[in-house]
C-alpha cells in the first residue's frame, strides 16, 4: 500500500471500514511493519503503533468509516486519521480519560474504555483534532524522529 513520493518521504494509506472488528488492527500492523523495515527507532515505532491502533479502533467503533494516512519523513512521522462522520459534539469531553459513548457490546470486547483519544495524544509529540457534526473528525499526530 506504500508509494514513494519524491523528497516527501513515504506515504501509506489505509481505508478503514465501519464496524469491521475482524480487520481492526490490520492498518496499524501494516504501518508498523513498514517502519520496522525502514529501521525506525523502536520507541518511535511503539508510539506510532499506539497512535495508529487507537485511531483505527476509533474509526471502526465510532464513525461511518474513514482512512488513515501516514507520511514517513526523515525527521518525523505524520499520521492523519480522517473519518466520514458523524463528528464529535464536545471535543473537550471526548478528550477526557474515561469518557466514552461506546455501546455495551463494544465494551464487553474490551474496547470503549474512554482512553483512545488520550492515548493518541500521549503517544504523539504534536496532536491536533478538529470535528464538525454531520461531517466528520480529523486527527493529526506528529511523532518526531
Amino acid at each position: 500500500m506504500g508509494s514513494n513520493e519524491k523528497n516527501t518521504g513515504i506515504k501509506l494509506e489505509y481505508e478503514i471500514l465501519k464496524d469491521d472488528f475482524a480487520r481492526a488492527g490490520e492498518a496499524s500492523s501494516g504501518i508498523k511493519k513498514v517502519l520496522r523495515q525502514l529501521g525506525i527507532d523502536s520507541s518511535a515505532i511503539r508510539k506510532t503503533a499506539i497512535a495508529t491502533y487507537e485511531a483505527e479502533i476509533n474509526i471502526v467503533i465510532h464513525s461511518e468509516g474513514g482512512k488513515i494516512l501516514v507520511y514517513i519523513k526523515p525527521d518525523k512521522i505524520e499520521i492523519i486519521a480522517k473519518d466520514n462522520g458523524p463528528g464529535i459534539k464536545d471535543i473537550d469531553l471526548a478528550m477526557q480519560k474515561g469518557f466514552s459513548t461506546a455501546s455495551n457490546r463494544v465494551r464487553e470486547l474490551g474496547f470503549g474504555a474512554g482512553m483512545g483519544l488520550p492515548n493518541m495524544k500521549k503517544s504523539s509529540d504534536e496532536f491536533y483534532i478538529e470535528s464538525e457534526m454531520g461531517k466528520g473528525t480529523t486527527v493529526k499526530m506528529i511523532i518526531t524522529l
Binding site: 481492526a24 491502533y53 470486547l109 474490551g110 482512553m115 500521549k122
Partner: peptide
C-alpha cells in the same frame, strides 16, 4: 481493557487476558 494494555504493557511481556477475539493478536 485493550486501550489500557496498549498504553501500559511492555515489550516482551506475556499477556493474560479473557478477551479471545481476533483483535488481541493485533495488540
Amino acid at each position: 481493557l485493550l486501550s489500557w494494555v496498549m498504553s501500559h504493557a511492555k515489550d516482551g511481556d506475556a499477556w493474560i487476558t479473557v478477551q479471545t477475539h481476533i483483535n488481541i493478536v493485533a495488540i
